[in-house]
């Protein structure tokens, strides 16, 4: 089995999930947007339900495959906290993240999302490559 089959199939499930949320509820499956709105208190039942489902995803994976998905965190606690602050701030300022801009926005051919995705991919590659060289 190709090592890229699971990433491809997993990615396709993300597209199906985004389609369901859009066609049925009329909402964009953007995680930073949904979490941000939850923190601001609007539409909270729906947003809380989505976040709960999202958290249950790895549990469902564990039930189906008998093991939790692999997670390895190489960064120190301080770096993880710094990364979290930047990701939270940046996704709200830029109105989206890998899901809202990267999946839904690209699928809608939104010029804003194409620009945002290019910007965060470029910054992510530059940062990770620099950090990798320093390690």
């Amino acid at each position: 089995m190709s090592p890229y089959l699971a990433p491809l199939l997993g990615g396709m499930l993300l597209g199906v999930a985004a389609t369901i949320l859009m066609i049925v509820n009329g909402r964009t499956a953007g995680i930073s947007g949904i979490v941000g709105q939850l923190l601001n208190g609007s539409k909270w039942v729906e947003d809380a339900a989505f976040v709960l489902g999202l958290c249950l995803g790895p549990l469902a994976y564990a039930i189906v495959f008998g093991t939790f998905p692999n997670v390895q965190i190489a960064s120190s606690g301080a770096l993880v906290a710094l990364a979290g602050l930047l990701v939270g701030f940046g996704t709200r300022m830029g109105s989206g993240c890998t899901s809202g801009h990267g999946i839904v926005g690209l699928a809608r051919l939104s010029p804003r999302s194409i620009a945002a995705t290019a910007a965060f991919l470029a910054a992510g590659v530059a940062t990770a490559t620099l950090m990798g060289a320093l390690r």
Partner: peptide, 24 residues
């Protein structure tokens, strides 16, 4: 949009987490 996305990208590149996978 662009500055926010760059700030997000820097945070993403530091630890490899973006909002969806982290919350899940």
């Amino acid at each position: 949009l662009l500055i926010g996305s760059v700030i997000f990208g820097i945070g993403w590149g530091i630890a490899g987490f973006c909002p969806g996978p982290a919350v899940a």
